[in-house]
Amino acid sequence: MRTAFDFSPLYRSTVGFDRLFDMLDQSSQIEPMTNWPPYNIEKVGEDQYVITMAIAGFAPDEIELTQKESQLLVAGQKKGSEEGRQYLHRGIATRAFKQTFNLADHVKVTDAHLENGLLTVDLKREVPEALKPRRIEINAGADAAPAGRPPQQIEHGKAA
């Protein structure tokens, strides 16, 4: 049984984690979980991930993969008619499905392929250079700019 948690104290002491808390809040609400189609999520490298979904019976043209901002939507819809078929046992599910995955910032789909009934989606986190951490030099003593004088321009690590 799930219980709802109050995340309001965390909102007061953090900045920029709204989306994370919204996802936690949504996951704590009681709602039917979709367990089909089954899937795995693997971390295969420092910034590389793979989602593998078991979708036997679907052709590549019956699957739609869409990434919009931080969400990846995988949807499947069987084409063709089931009319005229009489099943004595039907164990292969061919019902339509929609599965949404919330992706972290800067995670992009790099490849997707269907083989032996398994859809494999490769993902990679690619942080732009402008957003990567950078070291900032601190001037002290004789190198520091006196009050009232603008700081020196620095090119390629040397003072101008």
Score class of each variant (00 low, 15 high):
residue 142 A to P: 15
residue 133 P to H: 00
residue 142 A to T: 05
residue 117 G to D: 00
residue 118 L to K: 06
residue 134 R to L: 09
residue 150 P to D: 04
residue 119 L to F: 08
residue 129 E to K: 05
residue 125 R to D: 01
residue 128 P to L: 07
residue 127 V to N: 05
residue 141 G to M: 10
residue 120 T to L: 02
residue 122 D to F: 08
residue 133 P to W: 01
residue 146 P to N: 09
residue 113 H to P: 00
residue 131 L to G: 09
residue 135 R to D: 10
residue 139 N to K: 12
residue 127 V to M: 10
residue 134 R to A: 12
residue 113 H to L: 04
residue 127 V to W: 11
residue 148 G to K: 00
residue 132 K to E: 13
residue 142 A to Y: 11
residue 128 P to V: 08
residue 139 N to R: 13
residue 111 D to E: 11
residue 123 L to A: 09
residue 125 R to Q: 14
residue 143 D to V: 03
residue 119 L to M: 13
residue 111 D to G: 07
residue 128 P to H: 06
residue 114 L to M: 08
residue 123 L to W: 06
residue 128 P to C: 11
residue 131 L to T: 08
residue 126 E to N: 10
residue 149 R to K: 15
residue 123 L to M: 13
residue 113 H to Y: 07
residue 142 A to W: 04
residue 141 G to K: 06
residue 130 A to E: 14
residue 115 E to C: 02
residue 119 L to Y: 11
residue 145 A to Y: 06
residue 137 E to P: 06
residue 139 N to L: 12
residue 135 R to E: 09
residue 145 A to F: 02
residue 122 D to L: 07
residue 136 I to F: 12
residue 130 A to L: 12
residue 113 H to R: 07
residue 146 P to M: 06
residue 128 P to G: 09
residue 139 N to S: 12
residue 147 A to N: 12
residue 135 R to W: 02
residue 122 D to M: 07
residue 112 A to I: 01
residue 126 E to T: 13
residue 130 A to Q: 13
residue 113 H to I: 00
residue 144 A to L: 11
residue 134 R to G: 07
residue 143 D to E: 14
residue 127 V to C: 07
residue 140 A to L: 04
residue 125 R to W: 07
residue 142 A to S: 09
residue 112 A to S: 14
residue 119 L to W: 08
residue 130 A to S: 13
residue 141 G to P: 11
residue 116 N to M: 08
residue 115 E to R: 12
residue 146 P to E: 03
residue 121 V to Q: 00
residue 127 V to L: 14
residue 135 R to F: 05
residue 112 A to K: 10
residue 139 N to H: 10
residue 138 I to R: 15
residue 139 N to T: 07
residue 140 A to R: 11
residue 119 L to P: 13
residue 121 V to Y: 02
residue 122 D to Y: 06
residue 111 D to I: 03
residue 136 I to L: 14
residue 137 E to V: 03
residue 122 D to A: 14
residue 118 L to M: 09
residue 123 L to P: 10
residue 145 A to W: 05
residue 118 L to H: 09
residue 143 D to R: 13
residue 124 K to Y: 01
residue 150 P to H: 04
residue 134 R to F: 14
residue 150 P to E: 04
residue 123 L to G: 05
residue 150 P to K: 10
residue 119 L to C: 07
residue 136 I to S: 13
residue 117 G to K: 03
residue 113 H to G: 00
residue 131 L to Y: 14
residue 112 A to H: 12
residue 128 P to W: 05
residue 123 L to C: 05
residue 148 G to C: 01
residue 147 A to G: 11
residue 134 R to I: 11
residue 116 N to P: 13
residue 116 N to W: 02
residue 144 A to K: 15
residue 150 P to L: 06
residue 143 D to H: 05
residue 135 R to Y: 06
residue 137 E to D: 12
residue 116 N to E: 14
residue 120 T to C: 02
residue 138 I to M: 15
residue 145 A to T: 08
residue 119 L to R: 05
residue 132 K to W: 03
residue 142 A to D: 10
